[in-house]
């Protein structure tokens, strides 16, 4: 579903010089997989995720999603391709002046859906995340966990093949975290949506990922399999990360 081929990304440091966020990294993520990107702060995991929908443009390499090299697309085509890639954020990034229902409707308006189709799809998605009764509330009236559910419903609305989740539970308490993870797991199981999730919390990897890439200093150290909560890690770093908690 997603192939990153020899990706490089560097940022200019404010104090001068360059910072290599991602160095010559290749990664393949299968359709229907829940794939984790883990590592310490500054390892490049968020950058790697943002490279998948080209919120960051790679300095070199190809980003192939669903058979299409996104880096080769014209702006208009890229916008179309992005409608196939939902995104969920740590800080939710909801539109404060739109109701819950209108937030979920937003990507559908962008994609040019008809009013009737939007209404039906919004209702479906709110049901998936269990927020039917909050449709006419504004984000400010919701708890953190509810806001993230709106974020997930919004990402799910245009029937994407992939959902990219950037630390989706890092702003939430442990109990809410579990319910959000269950929600993502449910969506993956019911709709076969590929989920790529960035996290620094190891229990997140254990509880929902099928595989995870361990990143360090902009490189993939190891891709580990996660089965029934058991992690088969070989590298020192993967072990220290995954077996600590």
């Amino acid at each position: 579903m997603i192939h990153l081929q020899n990706i490089r990304k560097r940022f200019r440091r404010p104090e001068g010089g360059w910072f290599d966020a991602v160095r010559d990294t290749s990664l393949s993520i299968a359709p229907g997989e829940v794939f984790g990107l883990i590592g310490f702060s500054g390892a490049g995991k968020s950058t790697l995720l943002r490279l998948i929908n080209l919120l960051e443009r790679p300095d070199a390499g190809a980003v192939i999603v669903d058979g299409q090299d996104l880096t080769s697309l014209a702006p208009r085509e890229l916008r179309r391709a992005r409608q196939n890639l939902g995104m969920v954020f740590q800080q939710f990034n909801l539109l404060a002046n739109r109701t819950v229902a209108d937030n979920v409707a937003f990507p559908l308006e962008i994609a040019g859906w008809s009013r009737a189709d939007i209404e039906q799809r919004v209702a479906e998605c709110l049901e998936v995340v269990g927020l039917q009764d909050r449709a006419n509330h504004y984000p400010a009236q919701l708890s953190g966990g509810q806001k993230q559910r709106v974020g997930i419903a919004r990402a799910l609305a245009p029937r994407p093949k992939v959902i990219l989740a950037d630390e989706p539970t890092s702003a939430l308490d442990p109990k809410t975290t579990q319910s959000i993870l269950d929600c993502l797991k449910d969506i993956n199981a019911r709709f076969g949506v590929t989920v790529v999730i960035v996290t620094h919390e190891m229990h997140v990897v254990r509880s929902i990922c099928h595989r995870a890439a361990v990143l360090d200093a902009g490189e993939v150290v190891e891709v580990v399999d996660v089965a029934e909560g058991q992690v088969d890690a070989r590298s020192e770093l993967a072990r220290s990360l995954l077996e600590a908690a």
Partner: peptide, 29 residues
């Protein structure tokens, strides 16, 4: 917040959609 604009970009919103539906609507007050 920059993140809200970024969310719209990630959804494939065009610059005009971002200006009208995100910037002006979020800043209306």
């Amino acid at each position: 917040p920059r993140g809200v604009v970024e969310a719209a970009e990630a959804m494939g919103a065009s610059p005009l959609q971002i200006i009208v539906k995100v910037l002006l609507n979020e800043a209306r007050s």
